[in-house]
Design a binder for these strands. Structure first.
Length: 500
RNA sequence: GCCCCCAUCGUCUAGUGGCCUAGGACACAGCCCUCUCAAGGCUGAAACCGGGGUUCGAGUCCCCGUGGGGGCACCA
């Protein structure tokens, strides 16, 4: 058994509101949440909105609703408040400025008055020069810098990166990561608009909010040395760093781009958490599925509820390798979780899908029976109307040919239909126990296969070639409608027999 | 180009030196069950990237290749 952290952890999910929340973010939030709940710690939601240019209206709202849909809740955050408020970074501007100044006074950062590089300057990553090699302001005296600032000169604050030596930072799933300082640069900490860059804000906030474990995806690994340096410069203790791998496209070739995400949408798939509900996925299934991309429990168990994940999750079982997302596995999990549901619960969950398809659903008892019939047959909830819409239709219109049995004429089929009608009408109920044998006996009597009888009934009553088991179906539909539909089918057969 | 990370079936993974003729899951194929469709059961095909070490013994440790991924903004 992997050892579990005994101390309560304080973790956070800190997305930037620059787009729609996706699976990768969802999983990161989930892992943070799991660790917090497992240890009795705290899960914090923080909005990293220091880039106003990229801010997308409504992003925070969708973020919150997506996380809630997944079943997550947080102890501190923009919507619930908390002891470390505010939780929007743009509202914490003064805090960062104060700490940036501290860094400047301690010599770990400096004011830089260099002009903003032009868009097309050094566009090739290969020939980019280190800023610190060309910056004339690196060794400006603080007095001089302050004077230029008070005269209104535009400036940024840069970290003063050592030229010599190296830094080692430790990641919980990858071990020590060592980088030569010579490959680093004097990165910007505060922009000319006075707002911090991610690197400063994240370090200051994580420290102030007493974050013990930073769980974020591996795309942040390249900035880890910088963050380590900033912690050292402040003299603060670093959190435990955890960088789970990123998600790859289903084909395993690279991470999902905006374009790819768009293309997926046209295939009826999505990587946006907010889309899964209406695609008919259960949050339980999505959570179970995403938890297992990059994490495992043992060599057998794959089915987990949120509660079980809280219990079983462990940092040491996180995989360092990038993983492709696999939608067919999600379908599998969705089926599994649908089958786990209480039928009354399933009924409630499929109801909106019937309503969206235009069906009037007011008979809850009937809906529940339908849910029971559908339970082992659904992959996604949105399939319910197409599979079971006939239960709610006043009239159905079977294709006439489907009423004719295999290798049978219309006249023969008509005769069969009439006998079936007579038999059905005489039955006290349509349960399998009472209806099955008589129908089979009839088949024998008519020299037909049972399949002929059942096939006719299925098409006549559901107008579908596949449906839930016929006895269950007839029971739900009710005697009156069953007989009416058979009669309608007989009428169609009569017409066809005449024409023939 | 430079820096960093990673490497077991098509995919997600188990595996922490002998328990591995490498286990599970999805997908795929076949069979069984069967009123259709599912679900379920059984079976099958399917992998340790390559080369060097270390060791009595390597999927497991080390090195080098190769391959894949991420990053290199006054974005996060």
């Amino acid at each position: 058994m992997p050892s579990q952290p005994l101390q309560p952890t304080r973790v956070r999910f800190a997305p930037s509101p620059t787009g729609r929340p996706h699976l990768g973010g969802g999983r990161t939030a989930l892992y943070n949440y799991l660790l917090a709940r497992q240890t009795g710690g705290a899960f914090i939601l923080r909005i990293e909105d220091t880039d106003q240019k990229r801010y997308v209206p409504g992003a925070v709202e969708e973020l919150i609703s997506s996380l809630r849909w997944m079943g997550l809740d947080w102890d501190e955050g923009p919507d619930v408040g908390g002891p470390h408020a505010p939780y929007h970074q743009t509202e914490r501007r003064e805090i960062y400025q104060k700490y940036a100044r501290q860094l400047i006074e301690s010599g770990h950062a400096y004011y830089c008055f260099c002009p903003t590089p032009k868009e097309d300057e050094g566009s090739e990553p290969g020939d980019r020069r280190q800023h610190r090699e060309i910056c004339p302001d690196r060794d400006l005296s603080l007095e001089e810098a302050d004077a230029r600032i008070s005269s209104g000169e535009s400036h940024v604050i840069r970290f003063r990166m050592p030229f010599e030596g190296r830094i080692t930072v430790s990641d919980a799933i990858r071990g020590d990561i060592t980088v030569e300082n010579s490959t680093l640069d004097d990165y910007i900490l505060v922009k000319s608009n006075g707002l911090p860059v991610y690197h400063l804000a994240v370090v200051v906030d994580d420290h102030l909010m007493e974050i013990t474990h930073v769980i974020r995806t591996s795309e942040w690994l390249p900035t880890l040395p910088l963050h380590g340096h900033i912690y050292k410069a402040f003299g603060w203790e670093q959190p435990i760093w955890v960088h789970p791998s990123i998600f790859l496209k289903p084909d395993g070739k690279g991470k999902m781009s905006k374009r790819d995400a768009q293309a997926l949408l046209s295939e009826g798939k999505s990587i946006f958490v907010g889309d899964f509900k209406e695609m008919g996925y259960l949050p339980e299934a999505v959570v179970n599925w995403m938890a297992l991309i990059g994490w495992s429990y043992d060599d057998k168990t794959e089915f987990f509820t949120l509660e079980e994940l809280i219990d079983k999750f462990s940092l040491e079982k996180l995989s360092p390798a990038p993983a492709a997302i696999n939608f067919s596995k999600l379908d599998h999990f969705n089926g599994l979780h649908i089958r786990e549901l209480d039928p009354a619960d399933l009924a409630e969950r499929i109801k909106p899908f019937f309503e969206k398809a235009g069906y009037q659903v007011d008979d809850i008892d009937k809906l529940q029976q339908i849910a029971e019939a559908l339970q082992i047959r659904l992959t996604t909830l949105d399939e319910a109307p197409e599979k079971a819409g006939f239960f709610f239709q006043d009239e159905i219109h079977p294709e006439p040919e489907t009423l004719i049995g295999k290798k049978m004429s219309a006249a023969e089929s008509l005769e069969m239909a009439q006998r079936i009608h007579k038999l059905i009408a005489s039955l006290p109920d349509f349960s399998e126990e009472t209806a099955n044998q008589p129908l089979r006996d009839l088949a024998v009597e008519l020299g037909l296969k049972a399949g002929h009888i059942f096939g006719f009934l299925r098409n006549a009553i559901t107008s579908q070639k596949v449906s839930p088991p016929i006895f269950e179906t007839m029971t739900i539909i009710g005697r009156e409608t069953v007989l009416k539909r058979i009669e309608a089918a007989i009428a169609m057969l009569e017409r066809m027999a005449e024409e023939a």
